[in-house]
Design a protein around this nucleic acid. Structure first.
Lengths: 121, 121
DNA sequence: ACAGGACATCGACAATCATCGAAGCAAGCA
DNA sequence: TGCTTGCTTCGATGATTGTCGATGTCCTGT
């Protein structure tokens, strides 16, 4: 019943630092945190997705429209499929402006992944 | 020869920054670099592997024997399989000392992943 | 030499995934 | 209203992956 209160599963609200998780040297990950973070790494575990992500991230403002980044060697439906995965993982957000759809990187989520891998003691 | 007996193939030499790659905002990844990095992210894209890795990383000295970290809810062969994947990705190295096998994190490789995700301009 | 413990490899199987073409939907324009 | 372009969704398919039990290998006591 009251469980349905939290309908919003995903991640963010662009700008805030993401809750999860301290550097990996600080202690072992809980089962839940491990699943959360693994899903993010999985999003970047495909070469095509990584290239799409890098194209968007290296565009001015960290945003680009699909038409700008579609030349990665796979069909257009496949590009769309990969962008959806990145969006579902919280690494990208998308917004339609007129004819085109623009994708932006979600800085706080990416920062959380980077921080997790920080090995400084 | 000058480097003497270190005959290791892969990547590092603990301490140096790994060749691959600049921060993702600096430009789009080449096909080859994308494949290289995607393989590393893929190694961390499984919850069990992430937990194994976090256990090792949070052990003093960043090293632990298999017996210390095997309680992650899967069978022993599965643990061994996951450790192999992490080793093949270059994120861990292993060494047998008597009865036990010790796994260590490869700091420079992990640092490379963290650096790739650094969004600072 | 033998028994036993610590890990690794093998073979099998169910589940997930990347990819494509076809079809659908939204927005702009004639 | 119809046409065109940009992008998403659908359904199918071949490939990859996580998992297990059984078996193999290496080491250490006895």
């Amino acid at each position: 019943m009251s469980k349905s209160e939290i309908a919003e599963l995903p991640v963010l609200d662009a700008g805030a630092t993401v809750p999860c998780c301290p550097p990996i040297t600080a202690g072992e990950l809980s089962r839940a945190d491990a699943e959360k973070m693994a899903a993010m790494f999985k999003a970047l575990s495909d070469p095509v997705r990584l290239r799409l992500f890098s194209k968007i991230a290296s565009y001015p403002g960290g945003e680009a429209c699909v038409c700008d980044i579609s030349d990665v060697g796979v069909s257009q439906p496949t590009v769309s499929h990969h962008l959806k995965k990145l969006r579902e993982a919280g690494l990208l957000t998308s917004e339609r402006r007129g004819t085109w759809v623009y994708y932006q990187v979600a800085p706080s989520v990416v920062a959380a992944m980077s921080a997790l891998l920080d090995l400084r003691t």
